[in-house]
Deep mutational scan, measured.
Amino acid sequence: NKFNKELGWATWEIFNLPNLNGVQVKAFIDSLRDDPSQSANLLAEAKKLNDAQA
Rank of each mutant, 00 (worst) to 15 (best):
K26L: 11
N50R: 01
E6W: 13
Q38M: 08
N16G: 05
L42D: 00
L17Q: 02
N4M: 12
S37K: 06
R33Y: 15
R33H: 12
A52Q: 11
S37V: 04
S37H: 04
Q38A: 07
D35K: 08
N50F: 02
E6K: 07
E45R: 11
S39I: 15
A54V: 07
E13R: 13
A40M: 13
A46G: 01
F15N: 06
N19Q: 03
K47A: 04
F15P: 01
D34T: 10
P18D: 03
R33A: 08
L49G: 01
E45L: 11
F28H: 00
G22V: 12
K5T: 14
I14L: 12
A27L: 11
D34Y: 10
L20Q: 00
L17I: 01
V25S: 04
V23N: 12
A27I: 08
K47N: 04
L49S: 02
A44H: 08
S31F: 09
D30Q: 14
P18S: 07
D34E: 14
A27W: 15
F28M: 02
L20C: 02
D51N: 08
L49N: 02
D34S: 12
L43S: 01
F28Q: 00
L20S: 00
V23A: 15
S39D: 03
N19H: 13
I29L: 13
K2Y: 12
T11L: 15
D30T: 13
P18M: 07
N41K: 14
L42H: 03
E13N: 05
L43R: 03
G22K: 13
A27P: 00
I29G: 01
F15G: 03
K5P: 12
L49D: 01
E13V: 15
N50P: 00
N21A: 06
V25C: 07
I29M: 08
F3L: 12
T11S: 09
Q38E: 08
D34C: 10
A40E: 09
S39Y: 15
N50V: 01
E13F: 15
Q24I: 03
D30C: 14
D34I: 12
N41E: 12
S39A: 14
P36Q: 03
N19W: 14
E6Y: 10
P18Q: 06
N19I: 01
Q53A: 04
R33E: 06
T11Y: 13
K5W: 13
D30N: 11
N4L: 12
S39V: 15
A44C: 12
L49H: 02
L42F: 04
N16E: 03
K47H: 08
N1Q: 10
W12Q: 07
E13S: 06
N41Y: 14
D30A: 13
F28I: 04
E6Q: 06
A54L: 07
S37I: 03
K5N: 12
A46H: 01
P18W: 05
A10I: 15
Q53H: 04
A40C: 15
